[in-house]
Design a protein around this nucleic acid. Structure first.
Length: 215
DNA sequence: TCAATGATTAGC
DNA sequence: CTAATCATTGAT
């Protein structure tokens, strides 16, 4: 779908994902987010759309979840209502974007691990590459949780932001796929980069999709 | 107050 | 395989 003059996609009225749809267990929402669109509107009106191709779930009782031990300043958003962003800094270098799920008080979220960006670098105006670093192939531009935030220019200032469109200005929201995503070939497997909860199979990705971080 | 560490990435 | 790089965390 193309960007319209006003900045909001034409299908926004019918395809926006609402908090109620996200108010379920993270491991139930995570596979269903595959094939959905993550839409990033910048302050200047420019819009980026990424097809979600890889997700992971984090939930109560899960030792890998940031909220496993107790509520802290960092993980507080995960304890709140569904439909908000949980963004944190990892390794002092990258940010990771999560969609808060389930009922208030149930600390859980879905990590968006990879996107397939719509359009092209020419249309989107990809942020200039850092000096000394090779530009990635466009299809691999957001193939990893750190790259998702880098590409969409999402930092920790977005932590706690609600997911919904705005007529103008900066905003992030989710849309259901225009065509039914039921036919997607989903793969369920264990999560990546953990030292705890390594056996829990809460990672999902679209089989053979070139934008998936690892296979 | 302090040392350990992490839902990562790029480069060799 | 390793360096980079720092906010958060649980332990003194």
């Amino acid at each position: 779908m193309a960007i319209n003059g006003g900045g909001i996609p034409e299908s926004s009225q019918s395809s926006i994902i609402l908090p109620n749809w996200l108010s379920r267990a993270a491991e139930e929402v995570a596979p269903e987010l595959l094939g959905c669109w993550l839409v990033r509107q910048h302050a200047d009106g420019r819009i980026q759309r990424g097809l979600i191709v890889e997700t992971e779930a984090y939930a109560p009782g899960d030792p890998a979840c940031h909220a496993y031990r107790r509520q802290t300043a960092r993980n507080a958003v995960m304890f709140g209502a569904a439909g908000h962003l949980y963004v944190y800094l990892i390794y002092g270098l990258y940010c990771c974007l999560n969609i808060v799920t389930d009922q208030p008080g149930v600390a859980s979220a879905v990590l968006v691990r990879a996107l397939a960006l719509a359009g092209s670098p020419q249309e989107i105006v990809d942020p200039p590459p850092v000096s000394g670093k090779k530009p990635r192939p466009w299809i691999r531009r957001a193939a990893g949780p750190g790259l998702v935030c880098q590409t969409l220019q999402i930092d920790r200032s977005f932590n706690g932001c609600p997911l919904h469109p705005q007529p103008t200005g900066a905003a992030i929201w989710l849309e259901f796929p225009s065509r039914e995503a039921a036919s997607l070939d989903r793969v369920q497997t264990t999560r990546i980069g953990l030292t705890q909860g390594v056996e829990t199979p809460w990672r999902w990705y679209i089989r053979d999709h070139p934008a998936v971080s690892r296979r």
